[in-house]
Amino acid sequence: MSLAAEAFVSQISAADPWPENATLYQPLGEDQILLSDCASSLAVQAYLRMCNLPVQVCCRPNAEYMSPSGKVPFVHVGNQVVSELGPIVQFTKAKGHSLSDGLDDIQRAEMKAYMELVNNMLLTAELYIQWCDYNTAAEISRPRYSSPYSWPLNHILAYQKQWEVRRKMTAIGWAGKSLEQVYEDVSQCCQALSQRLGTQPYFFNKQPTELDALVFGHLFTLLTTRLTSDELREKVKSYSNLLAFCRRIEQSYFEDSQAGSSSRGFSKGPSLF
């Protein structure tokens, strides 16, 4: 898309209000979705709820192939399709919904930096555990990832995905890490987040931002997902302020609305309580 066309589209989208029938697509919640996708999807849901924008969650086995960037989740709003949290945040901003307007320049720089910290360490660690740890890949990731497909496509797609992630790990220098080192990285990242959060209710003052949505998505998923070992969950649990932070967001953005409209196809999975 050329720059002029892009500017035109963003003008159109700015003019349209957020429609009632906006849809978020993700892989099948019960049988298919994996840790990393579940975390990203939950982060987007939390962000949209914080913005007070209604969205219907729709599970499709081929969500990954429907997405314009090949990554889930993506939202379908009016006649536009946007994938991943970063672009979705920009998209809602063009429509006049933003959570980070109250921040000054330095705070905004720090917010972006911490968002990259989560992407760089937590997301990469989730991918590593899913696809590079032998037990998790064999017992959980490959069977779940390929569950909608029949033989022999299930094996082909699962191994193809695994191979791709492993090459990515090699390219960014994670291939030589052991599982213990990856757990150590997760711990380090949680330590940093915990330090930054301190005793505040949200990362920046009293109002949530997209950083809060992203951190909530990842930590909540790590806390509630059953893996081959509990070590990861225990690592996150040892930071009490992060645990309280997850509970706070769950209570204020997910529980009351769930009671009000339980027919919405909401798919957050198990709760912390």
Partner: peptide, 18 residues
């Protein structure tokens, strides 16, 4: 301080990703 250490980690990630 511990918070500055956390900021270091975050900004290094920002550099590496962006």
């Amino acid at each position: 301080s511990a918070k500055e250490g956390a900021d270091t980690l975050a900004f290094v990630s920002l550099l590496e990703e962006k």
